[in-house]
Design a protein around this nucleic acid. Structure first.
Length: 442
RNA sequence: GGCCCUAUCGUCUAACGGUUAGGACAUCGGCUUUUCAAGCCGGUAAUCAGAGUUCGAUUCUCUGUAGGGUCACCA
């Protein structure tokens, strides 16, 4: 009976902005810990003083918070230098490590480093996702574990920290598989028990190579800026390399945590596909209540100072056209919003419907439409009632011949929501004004 | 190149010896009776190859091939 509490960790190094792949491994660790009622720890691996930046650390914390991946403990390796020193000494004393004279190869290289005395044996471990994996560590040589007593290197600190935090399951990227035998060797030298390992497949760029900034992998915070919803990102990331079986795809975090299973994690790498993310995001947008949607829309469009009363009215209309809120900016650029707030400038040619380009006729029809609309009481300016009022005339003249010029008169655009919807939004007065403007033009 | 991992539609995946190989995204077509969007319906599309094991292999084994990872005084 194993009563050990599960403890997992996310251990990024703050040497750059982390991308979706990194946060997916964080998510898997997080889900596993939460499901088992265990702990999830964030550890900042900043032993590389030259490359580590506070800015990146802040971004990691910020991103995790946005995604809702809360951690129960936090530590930073640069705060623990002294501690590592005692372990280096221990390894030196036990003969498992030695000080080695070196010929510096690169600027910054020391002439003396501490190397691990490799026993040159076969190391076998059971990966929770891939099964048994065996390495001959002879190929590894006596690898460096510290540049000096106060400058330990990754392989050493990882082991010490994981052991000290009593990490039970190391869930990390597949790129660490080949590091695992080194770590196991250090565990053994220190007389410590190695944890369980689960190496999850890599997330690849569309060109099928490891994701990297160079190839356009974005920091996850960029997705927030582009107007993606964190719950959509979580759902999408969780489904990259794992799924609970069945055909359902939309799950909230609690459900994902409940269903998550390391045994079902895919062994092969996955390619990050923005189209699918967009679909997830759209699905999550549809789930949002009107008030929340309006909040997102008005926040995104704040710089344009649009009339907020009108904005509130058109929110459902414009939201169904986007899959992320950042696309609202594109709508502004494409002039798809302006006509809701100001009378549009009508291009005469646009009023012609297909082959129907007799402008005299178009004018007469618009006048009739306008007359009909004038008879409709203001309180009946709803989509359905307006349609009811206009339909007989549209049927008689040809729907396109009537409805197209009407819609263009109201929007000035080649494409827009249907005229009935527009009339409901504009109301009687504005509708009549716009129609008369167009009629004057003809 | 050595070592390690992997291999189902273009992409994410389901099927853990017996299915017309299923779903989703993307794509294409149709319908929603003006455009666009949304929605609905339908189509195209996959088991890397070759040997085994088996009555039967996407599934198990081996080989090949392909892809990826890793070989730092980075993590």
């Amino acid at each position: 009976m194993n009563t050990t509490k599960v403890i997992t960790r996310f251990a990024p190094s703050p040497t750059g902005y982390l991308h979706a792949g990194n946060y997916r491994t964080a998510l898997f660790s997080y889900m596993y810990a939460r499901q088992k009622g265990g702990k999830f720890i964030l550890r900042i691996e900043d032993t590389d003083k030259e490359r580590s930046k506070k800015e990146y650390e802040d971004n990691i914390i910020d991103s995790l918070k946005w995604l809702g991946l809360t951690y129960d403990d936090f530590c930073r390796q640069s705060d623990r230098t002294l501690l590592y020193g005692t372990y280096i000494q221990k390894l030196l004393d036990s003969g498992n490590a030695y000080i080695s004279k070196e010929i510096p190869k690169e600027p910054g290289d020391r002439s003396e480093v501490i190397r691990f005395k490799n026993p040159n044996k076969k190391v076998k471990f059971t990966d929770l996702i891939r099964g048994d994996i065996e390495f001959d560590t002879t190929d590894l040589g006596d690898f460096v574990i510290a540049r000096s007593m106060t400058e330990p290197v990754f392989h050493l600190v990882v082991v010490i920290d994981d052991a000290l935090s009593e990490i039970t399951h190391i869930i990390r990227g597949e790129d660490h598989i080949s590091n695992t035998p080194r770590h196991i060797l250090i565990y053994e030298a220190l007389g410590l028990m190695a944890p369980h390992y689960a190496h999850i497949p890599l997330l690849l760029s569309p060109d099928r190579t490891k994701m990297s900034k160079r190839k356009g992998a974005l920091p996850i915070t960029e997705y927030r800026k582009m107007g993606y919803l964190p719950e959509a990102v979580i759902n999408y990331l969780a489904f990259l390399g794992w799924n609970p079986g069945g055909e359902r795809e939309l799950y909230n975090v609690e459900e994902l945590i409940k269903l998550f299973d390391l045994n079902q994690v895919q062994k092969s790498a996955a390619i990050f596909n923005i189209e699918k993310l967009n679909w997830f995001n759209k699905e999550y947008i549809k789930l949002l209540p009107q008030e929340t949607l309006f909040k997102y829309v008005s926040e995104t469009l704040a710089p344009h100072n649009y009339n907020s009363e009108i904005l509130r009215k058109i929110t459902p209309l414009i939201v169904e056209r986007i899959s992320r809120f950042g696309e609202l900016e594109d709508m502004v650029k494409n002039n798809e919003l302006q006509y809701f707030f100001n009378c549009p400038v009508i291009k005469k040619e646009l009023l012609a419907w297909k082959t129907e380009n007799d402008f005299q006729k178009i004018k007469e029809r618009l006048i009739t439409v306008s007359d009909i609309l004038k008879t409709v009481p203001e309180s009946d300016y709803t989509k359905d009632k307006i349609k009811e009022a206009l339909w007989p005339f549209a049927e008689k003249e040809g729907r396109g011949a009537v409805l197209w010029p009407l819609r263009v008169s109201l929007s000035g655009q080649e494409k827009s929501p249907d005229p009935f919807t527009l009339i409901e939004i504009f109301g009687k007065e504005e509708t009549i004004i716009r129609l008369e403007n167009t009629i004057k033009l003809l």
